[in-house]
Nucleic acid binder design. Structure first.
Lengths: 213, 213
DNA sequence: CTGAAAGTTGATGGAATAGTCAACTTAGCT
DNA sequence: AGCTAAGTTGACTATTCCATCAACTTTCAG
């Protein structure tokens, strides 16, 4: 319920907006590791203001990408409305990967940072639930292989993240080929026994936590 | 033919070996971005000596991983000796990924640095040739999908690299599952039309060049 | 043994970035 | 208008790392 607990003074709110906008641009083009001083300079405020508003880099990252979890959840909802379960899964993964390909900062975030907001938000839980439904539906339709779990989707995120990083400058769409190959591996018809048990949900949580630098 | 053009003085050679050994260890456990000062300290020499012997970080990286290209070529040869073409391909990719999983520095190298030695070595060309044969053989046997190219193998390298980074601490073998899923996507039986034309060889060269920081 | 070339040292400079804080400015309430 | 809490500033410290170099030490050929 507390979207923000305390109301900011008007100039403070304006500066906050400028900072988030500047960070959004810089993150998108240069990744999450841009110098914070540069964010402040781009926003036209002093570095002290930035640190005052966002004590740590992660706070700024959270603010910039606050809406993304909800966006993913919306994509998932749309995917569930598609008639064909397999098409729904494909659509979901394609749209999410498009988000990665379009924003270097978001690509960094999903591939190596801790999930955005510290306390797993409501949107987060909703997205999780929706993804489960997308997979279950595709599995029950006989399109998705039986042994494929939600955690396996992390391989998509990680793999595509690196491909986007590597190929972005030369062949910005190359990741679509990578994804298509992975997707063919997800099909029930393609299934051969997997050599390693699935990553368990709590393991994935630990992985994402430890991943953050 | 010039393995090294000029013979080093004995103490210089000893220090060089110490530096390479120290770098090998540090790269393996902490990645390619360790501070060069720390490499020197670990080797027990001064930083001046390190810079004297290896003017740039890449020179040191080259020295540490000089043998890897030949190792990959040997793996490829072994793969070609296997009776079943598909098993050969699987074996090759598994062994190469094992190299990535075993050494964080090598994982960094294949996933984001320029191919080791500046002038593409003889081993390099040989490895390339052998990989082509591995793929052709699997394709002709009807096991590998027709539309899969050598450049598509880069998706394996990139994807597994990121998965190894992410999961290494919690589930060191998780990459095997990722690889198995990808491999199922490479099977001829799984093939559905790919949405994006293959990355061309010269594009891959550019990608690998531009990727280096 | 000796001299000169080769090699080493570590202090030093310099660049980039994170983070702090005392002095100053401004919004907004009364 | 006047006051005060909230906010801003930018210079400052600290850290980390890369890179250099003049003075010193070691190797080794003759």
């Amino acid at each position: 319920m507390p979207t923000h607990a305390k109301p900011l003074r008007r100039d403070a709110q304006r500066n906050r907006d400028l900072l988030v906008a500047a960070a959004r641009d810089l993150f998108a083009t240069r990744g999450l590791d841009v110098a914070l001083d540069e964010v402040a300079r781009t926003a036209g405020v002093s570095s002290g203001t930035l640190y005052n508003r966002f004590p740590s880099r992660n706070d700024l990252i959270d603010a910039v990408f606050a809406d993304r979890t909800a966006t993913v959840a919306r994509i998932a909802e749309h995917a569930l409305e598609m008639a064909d379960p397999w098409d729904g899964l494909v659509h979901f993964l394609e749209r999410v990967c498009e988000l990665q390909a379009a924003d270097r900062g978001y690509n960094d975030l999903v591939s190596r940072r801790v999930p955005q907001v510290a306390p797993p938000s409501e949107d987060h839980a909703r997205g999780y639930e929706l993804m489960q439904r997308i997979l279950a539906r595709a599995r029950e339709a006989g399109a998705l292989r039986e042994d494929c779990t939600l955690e396996d989707m992390a391989f998509v995120t990680w793999g595509i993240a690196r491909t986007v990083e590597a190929t972005g400058a030369v062949r910005p769409q190359a990741w679509r080929r990578h994804l298509a190959l992975l997707l063919d591996g997800f099909r029930a018809a393609a299934a051969h026994p997997l050599p390693e048990p699935p990553v368990r949900p709590e393991e994935l949580v630990r992985i994402m936590r430890e991943c953050s630098p």
